[in-house]
Protein backbone atom coordinates (compact mmCIF):
# COMPACT_ATOMS: atom_id res chain seq x y z
CA UNK A 1 0.00 0.00 0.00
CA UNK A 2 1.13 3.57 -0.67
CA UNK A 3 -0.24 6.41 1.45
CA UNK A 4 1.34 9.86 1.59
CA UNK A 5 0.15 13.17 2.93
CA UNK A 6 1.26 16.75 2.50
CA UNK A 7 -0.50 19.31 4.67
CA UNK A 8 0.21 21.94 2.03
CA UNK A 9 -0.34 21.38 -1.69
CA UNK A 10 2.21 24.10 -2.46
CA UNK A 11 5.21 21.78 -2.85
CA UNK A 12 3.46 19.49 -5.33
CA UNK A 13 1.91 22.42 -7.18
CA UNK A 14 5.41 23.84 -7.61
CA UNK A 15 6.78 20.49 -8.75
CA UNK A 16 4.14 20.27 -11.48
CA UNK A 17 4.73 23.90 -12.40
CA UNK A 18 8.41 23.07 -12.84
CA UNK A 19 7.94 20.06 -15.15
CA UNK A 20 4.52 19.97 -16.85
CA UNK A 21 5.56 22.63 -19.37
CA UNK A 22 8.19 20.51 -21.11
CA UNK A 23 7.33 16.93 -20.07
CA UNK A 24 3.99 15.27 -20.87
CA UNK A 25 4.31 12.19 -18.69
CA UNK A 26 6.63 11.00 -15.95
CA UNK A 27 7.64 7.87 -14.11
CA UNK A 28 6.99 8.06 -10.34
CA UNK A 29 9.06 5.63 -8.26
CA UNK A 30 7.86 5.38 -4.63
CA UNK A 31 10.11 3.50 -2.24
CA UNK A 32 10.88 3.52 1.48
CA UNK A 33 13.28 6.43 1.04
CA UNK A 34 10.88 8.68 -0.85
CA UNK A 35 9.74 9.65 -4.36
CA UNK A 36 12.01 9.61 -7.41
CA UNK A 37 10.47 11.08 -10.54
CA UNK A 38 11.94 10.98 -14.03
CA UNK A 39 10.68 12.31 -17.33
CA UNK A 40 12.02 12.84 -20.83
CA UNK A 41 10.60 15.23 -23.41
CA UNK A 42 9.09 13.68 -26.54
CA UNK A 43 12.22 14.39 -28.62
CA UNK A 44 14.43 12.74 -25.96
CA UNK A 45 16.63 15.83 -25.75
CA UNK A 46 15.96 16.75 -22.11
CA UNK A 47 15.61 14.63 -19.00
CA UNK A 48 14.39 15.75 -15.57
CA UNK A 49 15.05 13.86 -12.34
CA UNK A 50 13.32 14.85 -9.09
CA UNK A 51 13.97 13.45 -5.62
CA UNK A 52 11.64 14.13 -2.67
CA UNK A 53 12.79 12.22 0.41
CA UNK A 54 10.12 10.73 2.70
CA UNK A 55 10.84 13.54 5.21
CA UNK A 56 9.33 16.01 2.72
CA UNK A 57 5.93 14.43 3.48
CA UNK A 58 3.96 14.85 6.67
CA UNK A 59 2.95 11.21 6.48
CA UNK A 60 4.76 8.64 4.34
CA UNK A 61 3.76 4.97 4.20
CA UNK A 62 5.18 2.83 1.39
CA UNK A 63 5.54 -0.80 2.34
CA UNK A 64 6.51 -2.00 -1.13
CA UNK A 65 8.29 -0.20 -4.00
CA UNK A 66 5.74 1.06 -6.48
CA UNK A 67 6.50 2.49 -9.91
CA UNK A 68 3.89 4.22 -12.06
CA UNK A 69 3.70 6.31 -15.20
CA UNK A 70 1.40 9.32 -14.92
CA UNK A 71 0.19 11.96 -17.35
CA UNK A 72 1.54 15.31 -16.14
CA UNK A 73 -0.89 17.44 -18.13
CA UNK A 74 -3.87 15.81 -16.38
CA UNK A 75 -2.14 16.12 -13.00
CA UNK A 76 -1.34 19.79 -13.61
CA UNK A 77 -5.03 20.45 -14.36
CA UNK A 78 -6.08 18.77 -11.11
CA UNK A 79 -3.46 20.67 -9.10
CA UNK A 80 -4.56 23.98 -10.60
CA UNK A 81 -7.92 23.41 -8.85
CA UNK A 82 -6.11 22.86 -5.54
CA UNK A 83 -5.36 25.73 -3.17
CA UNK A 84 -1.91 26.06 -1.70
CA UNK A 85 -3.08 25.20 1.79
CA UNK A 86 -5.13 22.18 0.74
CA UNK A 87 -4.14 18.90 2.37
CA UNK A 88 -3.10 16.36 -0.27
CA UNK A 89 -3.36 12.60 0.24
CA UNK A 90 -1.86 10.23 -2.35
CA UNK A 91 -2.96 6.59 -2.19
CA UNK A 92 -2.41 3.47 -4.29
CA UNK A 93 -3.26 -0.14 -3.48
CA UNK A 94 -1.57 -3.18 -4.95
CA UNK A 95 -4.94 -4.28 -6.19
CA UNK A 96 -3.60 -4.14 -9.75
CA UNK A 97 -6.15 -1.41 -10.46
CA UNK A 98 -3.27 0.56 -11.99
CA UNK A 99 -4.64 3.79 -10.64
CA UNK A 100 -3.48 6.26 -7.99
CA UNK A 101 -5.86 8.50 -6.05
CA UNK A 102 -5.09 12.13 -5.19
CA UNK A 103 -7.38 13.71 -2.61
CA UNK A 104 -7.40 17.46 -1.91
CA UNK A 105 -9.08 18.62 1.27
CA UNK A 106 -9.69 22.29 1.94
CA UNK A 107 -9.01 23.05 5.63
CA UNK A 108 -11.48 25.97 5.58
CA UNK A 109 -14.70 24.38 4.44
CA UNK A 110 -13.74 20.71 4.40
CA UNK A 111 -14.51 20.49 0.67
CA UNK A 112 -12.88 17.36 -0.78
CA UNK A 113 -11.84 16.80 -4.40
CA UNK A 114 -10.83 13.29 -5.48
CA UNK A 115 -8.86 12.51 -8.66
CA UNK A 116 -8.05 9.00 -9.90
CA UNK A 117 -5.21 8.81 -12.42
CA UNK A 118 -4.70 5.72 -14.58
CA UNK A 119 -1.12 4.60 -15.05
CA UNK A 120 0.26 5.40 -18.51
CA UNK A 121 3.36 4.22 -20.38
CA UNK A 122 6.44 6.36 -19.86
CA UNK A 123 8.51 7.00 -22.97
CA UNK A 124 11.77 5.34 -22.03
CA UNK A 125 12.23 6.38 -18.39
CA UNK A 126 13.48 5.55 -15.79
CA UNK A 127 17.07 5.65 -16.96
CA UNK A 128 20.19 5.02 -14.92
CA UNK A 129 21.76 8.44 -14.28
CA UNK A 130 25.46 8.13 -13.41
CA UNK A 131 27.01 10.59 -10.99
CA UNK A 132 29.49 12.24 -13.39
CA UNK A 133 32.76 13.07 -11.57
CA UNK A 134 33.17 16.75 -10.65
CA UNK A 135 36.46 16.77 -12.58
CA UNK A 136 34.56 16.24 -15.83
CA UNK A 137 32.93 19.68 -15.56
CA UNK A 138 34.91 22.64 -16.86
CA UNK A 139 32.74 25.14 -14.97
CA UNK A 140 29.95 25.38 -12.40
CA UNK A 141 27.88 28.53 -11.87
CA UNK A 142 25.58 29.05 -8.88
CA UNK A 143 23.15 31.96 -9.16
CA UNK A 144 19.75 33.12 -7.96
CA UNK A 145 17.10 31.08 -9.79
CA UNK A 146 14.96 34.20 -10.30
CA UNK A 147 17.93 35.84 -12.03
CA UNK A 148 18.38 32.83 -14.33
CA UNK A 149 14.65 32.89 -15.15
CA UNK A 150 14.80 36.64 -15.91
CA UNK A 151 17.78 36.14 -18.22
CA UNK A 152 16.02 33.34 -20.12
CA UNK A 153 12.91 35.52 -20.50
CA UNK A 154 14.96 38.49 -21.75
CA UNK A 155 16.82 36.37 -24.29
CA UNK A 156 13.59 34.72 -25.47
CA UNK A 157 11.89 38.06 -25.99
CA UNK A 158 14.91 39.28 -27.95
CA UNK A 159 15.87 36.06 -29.69
CA UNK A 160 13.58 34.70 -32.33
CA UNK A 161 11.92 32.33 -29.87
CA UNK A 162 9.45 31.33 -32.57
CA UNK A 163 12.38 29.91 -34.46
CA UNK A 164 12.89 26.40 -33.16
CA UNK A 165 16.63 26.71 -33.48
CA UNK A 166 17.36 29.78 -31.39
CA UNK A 167 20.33 28.97 -29.18
CA UNK A 168 21.74 30.65 -26.13
CA UNK A 169 25.51 30.51 -25.78
CA UNK A 170 26.60 30.30 -22.14
CA UNK A 171 30.25 31.30 -21.68
CA UNK A 172 32.09 31.15 -18.36
CA UNK A 173 35.46 32.60 -17.44
CA UNK A 174 36.81 33.15 -13.92
CA UNK A 175 35.11 36.55 -13.54
CA UNK A 176 31.74 36.24 -15.18
CA UNK A 177 29.15 34.17 -16.98
CA UNK A 178 27.78 35.47 -20.29
CA UNK A 179 24.49 34.61 -21.96
CA UNK A 180 24.40 35.40 -25.69
CA UNK A 181 21.72 34.96 -28.34
CA UNK A 182 21.22 36.06 -31.92
CA UNK A 183 17.88 37.60 -32.97
CA UNK A 184 16.59 38.39 -36.46
CA UNK A 185 18.26 41.75 -36.62
CA UNK A 186 20.95 41.70 -33.99
CA UNK A 187 22.44 40.02 -30.97
CA UNK A 188 21.98 40.26 -27.21
CA UNK A 189 24.56 39.56 -24.52
CA UNK A 190 23.85 39.50 -20.78
CA UNK A 191 26.93 39.55 -18.54
CA UNK A 192 26.66 38.35 -14.92
CA UNK A 193 29.67 39.15 -12.77
CA UNK A 194 30.72 36.90 -9.93
CA UNK A 195 29.56 38.75 -6.81
CA UNK A 196 32.30 39.50 -4.31
CA UNK A 197 31.49 38.31 -0.83
CA UNK A 198 32.13 41.87 0.30
CA UNK A 199 28.90 42.87 -1.45
CA UNK A 200 27.17 40.39 0.87
CA UNK A 201 24.19 40.11 -1.51
CA UNK A 202 21.45 37.92 -0.21
CA UNK A 203 21.90 35.62 -3.21
CA UNK A 204 25.41 35.52 -4.73
CA UNK A 205 26.51 34.53 -8.19
CA UNK A 206 29.46 32.18 -7.73
CA UNK A 207 31.72 30.69 -10.40
CA UNK A 208 33.96 27.62 -10.10
CA UNK A 209 35.99 27.42 -13.27
CA UNK A 210 38.62 24.80 -14.19
CA UNK A 211 38.89 26.09 -17.74
CA UNK A 212 36.97 28.57 -19.84
CA UNK A 213 33.95 27.07 -21.54
CA UNK A 214 31.42 28.31 -24.07
CA UNK A 215 28.47 26.07 -24.99
CA UNK A 216 25.30 26.49 -27.06
CA UNK A 217 21.90 25.32 -25.81
CA UNK A 218 18.40 25.38 -27.26
CA UNK A 219 16.74 28.49 -25.80
CA UNK A 220 13.28 26.91 -25.56
CA UNK A 221 14.63 24.19 -23.28
CA UNK A 222 16.54 26.78 -21.20
CA UNK A 223 13.25 28.59 -20.63
CA UNK A 224 11.57 25.39 -19.45
CA UNK A 225 14.51 24.57 -17.16
CA UNK A 226 14.25 27.99 -15.55
CA UNK A 227 10.83 27.01 -14.18
CA UNK A 228 12.68 25.03 -11.52
CA UNK A 229 12.80 28.40 -9.73
CA UNK A 230 9.41 27.51 -8.20
CA UNK A 231 11.27 25.00 -6.03
CA UNK A 232 14.47 26.77 -5.03
CA UNK A 233 16.07 30.20 -4.76
CA UNK A 234 19.35 29.03 -6.24
CA UNK A 235 20.24 27.18 -9.44
CA UNK A 236 23.59 25.49 -10.09
CA UNK A 237 24.58 25.08 -13.75
CA UNK A 238 27.34 22.50 -14.43
CA UNK A 239 28.93 22.76 -17.86
CA UNK A 240 31.07 20.30 -19.79
CA UNK A 241 31.78 20.17 -23.52
CA UNK A 242 31.38 16.41 -23.58
CA UNK A 243 28.77 15.63 -20.94
CA UNK A 244 25.15 16.60 -20.39
CA UNK A 245 24.78 20.00 -18.75
CA UNK A 246 23.03 19.82 -15.38
CA UNK A 247 20.70 22.53 -14.09
CA UNK A 248 20.15 21.67 -10.43
CA UNK A 249 17.75 23.22 -7.91
CA UNK A 250 18.08 21.92 -4.34
CA UNK A 251 14.67 21.60 -2.63
CA UNK A 252 15.27 22.70 0.96
CA UNK A 253 16.91 19.72 2.65
CA UNK A 254 14.47 17.22 1.26
CA UNK A 255 15.65 16.70 -2.31
CA UNK A 256 16.40 18.28 -5.65
CA UNK A 257 15.23 18.71 -9.22
CA UNK A 258 17.84 18.27 -11.96
CA UNK A 259 17.40 19.00 -15.68
CA UNK A 260 19.87 17.40 -18.09
CA UNK A 261 20.57 18.35 -21.69
CA UNK A 262 23.52 18.05 -24.09
CA UNK A 263 25.02 21.20 -25.61
CA UNK A 264 24.54 21.65 -29.34
CA UNK A 265 27.70 20.84 -31.25
CA UNK A 266 28.97 22.21 -34.58
CA UNK A 267 28.35 19.75 -37.40
Amino acid sequence: ILELRLVQATLFKNVLEAISDLFSKANFDFSGTGLELQAMDTSHVALVALLLRAEAFNHYLCDRDLSMGLNLADMAKAFRCANNDDIITIKAEEDWSDTVTFTFESPEDGEISIFDFDFVGTNGVPLEIPEFPESEYQAKVRMPSAKFMRICKKLSSFGDSGDRDTVVIISVDKECVNFFTRGKTGTSTIVCRQTQTVDKPKEPTLIEMKEQVSLAFDLRYMNSFSKGSTLSDQVTISLSSNLPAVFEYKIAETGYIRYYMLPRIEE
Binding site: L47, G124, L127, D218, P244, L262, R264, E267
Partner: peptide, 14 residues
Protein backbone atom coordinates in the same frame (compact mmCIF):
# COMPACT_ATOMS: atom_id res chain seq x y z
CA UNK B 1 24.16 24.56 -38.26
CA UNK B 2 24.74 22.73 -35.01
CA UNK B 3 23.27 19.39 -34.07
CA UNK B 4 21.45 18.41 -30.90
CA UNK B 5 22.33 14.97 -29.53
CA UNK B 6 19.79 12.89 -27.59
CA UNK B 7 20.13 12.58 -23.84
CA UNK B 8 19.68 8.81 -24.12
CA UNK B 9 23.19 8.53 -25.54
CA UNK B 10 24.49 9.26 -22.04
CA UNK B 11 22.00 7.55 -19.76
CA UNK B 12 21.40 3.83 -20.04
CA UNK B 13 18.14 1.99 -19.51
CA UNK B 14 17.46 1.33 -15.85
Amino acid sequence: PCIQKKIMEYFSKD
